[in-house]
Design a protein around this nucleic acid. Sequence first.
DNA 1: GTAATATGCATAG
DNA 2: TATGCCTATTACC
Length: 293
Amino acid sequence: MPEGHTIHALAGRLNRAFAQEQVRASSPQGRFAGGAQILDRRVLVEAGAWGKNLFVEFDGDVWLHVHLGLIGVFPVVPLPVDLRGLDPSELPTSGAVRLRIAGHGHVADLRGPMTCALVAPGEIAALTGRLGPDPLRPDADPDLGWAKVSRSARPVAELLMDQAVVAGVGNVYRCEVLFRHRVDPMRPGKEIRRSTWRAIWDDLVRLLPLGVIYHQILTMDDQIEAAEAEIAAGEALRHTADLTGERLGDHFERRFFLYKRTGEPCLVCGSKVRAKPLAGRTLYWCGRCQRRR
DNA sequence: GTAATATGCATAG
DNA sequence: TATGCCTATTACC
């Protein structure tokens, strides 16, 4: 289930599997037959991500835009040796595959995406222009997000989910990062201090790359430190080098401060974790730790 | 087994 | 505010 880190990791896997290689494209399900036909036998130049949007450049200035939405998946898996060299249409398919990309050694099947479309180069800029800064992109400018936050009466928990304010944050990161900074989720953006916003941003810049490397959202301090120590020791490479979409089992125990812990005790103060819908998703927060001050 | 839920968001009403 | 997407996991018989 994708927040920004998932899509950046996916772009990396696609690049390791297919970059600069001529690929076969097809739409076993049929709903992207026309687009797949245009992509077929082109060189996949490079895949990149901005927030939760995946952009894949093919030669001839053809771009693919994919958004997984809530339920989309796009696993990139090694092709069994005995299946290599087969026409992609001869590969076994199960379920509804909107787009299949096959190279010499890998195949990637896209299922259940919200968006899968070809776009002209100029439209890419139009799409990214509507997105806020992405903490995973080196060129990201947090002040662009601050400009919107500081002028808005909307709750900060809603603003964090708005892809025009920050691109790539989803429900887990928004809940957890607000807790990490003890910010009341309902506090209007205009009442947030600039230093608080900057601290949240810097935290996202620290946390999201860990999500990319481990394919797992880490927000607990002990796990963050353990991950950073592994990375510093060069022991995390095997996670990134692994370019398949197979579930390897979580590297770290799956636990959060708040996420999906409704009614359980806050890990800091012991009061019950609360939950309610906000911006279309379930917001989790601690009414005591995150009380307005 | 069957149903509910979800790390998202566009579009219809 | 409600629905669709139509997968994968988890919750609940």
